[in-house]
Each structure stands twice: as structure tokens, then as C-alpha cells.
């Protein structure tokens, strides 16, 4: 049964927040398994617990009960140093608001995680330029984020997320602040990277364009998994796209 490696495993996870006197249960017992190399979209209305689940998969938050395993490591067992190492080496983050560091150039933004990982400067520079070329910004590595368009900034962020060859890329609404066509470009870029590098991409999104490229869509509602759709079911409900027919 376990011939497929699960990069992320979520086992009956709940999360409660204390909001003044009220206790808010954001997650009410979620279990999931995410296969290595898949492109996953987590969909759900705001307030559904989607972001909470997403943050937990990203090692940014710990569950109130239940367990989250990233690459078979229980993140609740990790101390601050190990969590930092996990964030640095295993996970690449992409944000809705791009979150490039404004005082640094595109290249410096991409090489920063490599510096944290202990890579020497020359090797980091070389790899940084290679990654920027891969996302189509090879000629703009000296630019500051303020000199780049939104789409270009997000490309830099994609390159940065790949800096330490992570196992997972977490993308939080990566197209939320982009116009339609730029958003499509970023989605296509992510899809290409997932195919080329085999990295698992997990993205929280409202964007239906994202469904077209996903291997699996996880619908969250009211703190529970509403349904999990695989690629085959999807192409029926969304309609086949880009000549990619589901194989039955």
C-alpha cells in the first residue's frame, strides 16, 4: 500500500484559538496524505480553516491535537533550531504579497536562503543566477524589487523558494495580487517547475485557474475536509484543458 511516498501527512489535526472568551475551533479533525511530487490546491472560502491548515503544513503553526508529519518528521517534536532548518531546507514559501526583501536585489533575495543554509557566496551567486534564468529573469538579477513588476517580483519569489532544493513549495494565494494573464504565467511556471524538479507544490487559493493544473484539489469547509478531487474527477467537473486528458 505504501509504495507512494507521502511528503506530508496530517493525522486527525484540530486547532482551537482562544478569541477573548470564545473558543474558536478552526480545524475540527483533518486527516490528509499528500504524495511526493504532486501539485495540490487547497480550496475553501475564507474562514474555512484553509489558512490554518496551510500554515500547519508549512511548519508555521502547531496543531492543538493530532499530528503533522513533514517528510515523516513530526513537526511538534522539533525545537526552534530544527524548525528553522526545516523552513530553510525542506520548504520553499511563496506569498500572495511576494514578500521580497526590499533592501536587497533580486539575486540577493534568491541567495539569502542559501546563505542561511551555509552555502558559500560564490556557489550561491552561481546558483541564484541559474534559478533566476530558470524563471525567465536572468537579465534582471541586479534589480531591486521596487524596479520589478508584480509578476516579475513573484518570479523572483519562485526562484527564491527553490533556493535550497526544497521538497515542498508552499504557495499562499500566489496569484492573488496579480492580474489574470500574469497569474496564468505564474501558474504555468509553477507547473513546469513541479514537472521538471519533482518538487511537491501545495497552494492555498481561490483561483479557479489553479484547478486546471492541480493533480489534486482539497476542499476545506468549516474546519473539515469537504472533498478531495483527483485530476481525473477534476477534468470532468472543470472541463479538460490544454490538451491534458485524464487517463482512466
Amino acid at each position: 500500500m505504501t509504495d507512494i511516498h507521502h511528503i506530508v501527512r496530517v493525522a486527525s489535526v484540530t486547532k482551537t484559538f482562544q478569541m477573548g472568551r470564545n473558543v474558536l475551533q478552526a480545524l475540527k479533525g483533518i486527516s490528509l496524505e499528500i504524495n511526493t511530487g504532486d501539485y495540490i490546491s487547497i480550496m475553501g472560502p475564507s474562514g474555512s480553516g484553509k489558512s490554518t491548515l496551510f500554515n500547519m503544513i508549512g511548519g508555521l503553526d502547531k496543531p492543538s491535537s493530532g499530528k503533522v508529519f513533514i517528510d515523516e518528521v513530526d513537526i511538534a517534536q522539533l525545537d526552534a533550531y530544527e524548525l528553522a532548518w526545516l523552513r530553510c531546507r525542506k520548504i520553499g514559501y511563496i506569498f500572495q504579497t511576494f514578500n521580497l526583501i526590499h533592501v536587497m536585489t533580486a539575486l540577493e533575495n534568491v541567495t539569502l536562503p542559501m546563505t542561511f543554509a551555509g552555502m558559500n557566496n560564490d556557489a550561491a551567486m552561481e546558483k541564484g543566477i541559474k534559478l533566476l534564468e530558470m524563471v525567465g529573469l536572468g537579465d534582471r538579477f541586479r534589480h531591486k524589487p521596487s524596479e520589478l513588476s508584480g509578476g516579475q517580483q513573484q518570479r523572483v519569489a519562485v526562484a527564491r523558494s527553490l533556493a535550497n532544493d526544497p521538497a515542498i513549495i508552499l504557495a499562499d494565494e500566489p496569484t492573488g495580487n496579480l492580474d489574470l494573464s500574469t497569474g496564468e504565467e505564474i501558474i504555468a511556471l509553477l507547473k513546469r517547475l513541479s514537472e521538471e524538479t519533482g518538487v511537491t507544490i501545495i497552494s492555498a487559493t481561490h483561483d479557479f485557474k489553479m484547478l486546471n493544473v492541480s493533480d489534486q484539489v482539497i476542499w476545506i469547509r468549516d474546519g473539515l475536509v469537504e472533498k478531495i478531487e483527483n485530476r481525473e474527477d477534476l477534468s470532468i467537473s472543470v472541463g479538460g484543458i490544454g490538451g491534458r486528458e485524464a487517463v482512466h
Binding site: A80, A84, Y93, I101, L112, P113, R160
Partner: peptide, 16 residues
């Protein structure tokens, strides 16, 4: 705060 949070997502420790 966003810059600091981002750095921490990239792996920065409190002491950095």
C-alpha cells in the same frame, strides 16, 4: 514585520 516574518520563513533564527 513582513520582512522579518519572511526572513524567518526562509529559516532565520530569532538571534539572526
Amino acid at each position: 514585520f513582513r520582512e522579518i516574518g519572511t526572513m524567518k520563513c526562509l529559516g532565520a533564527l530569532d538571534r539572526f
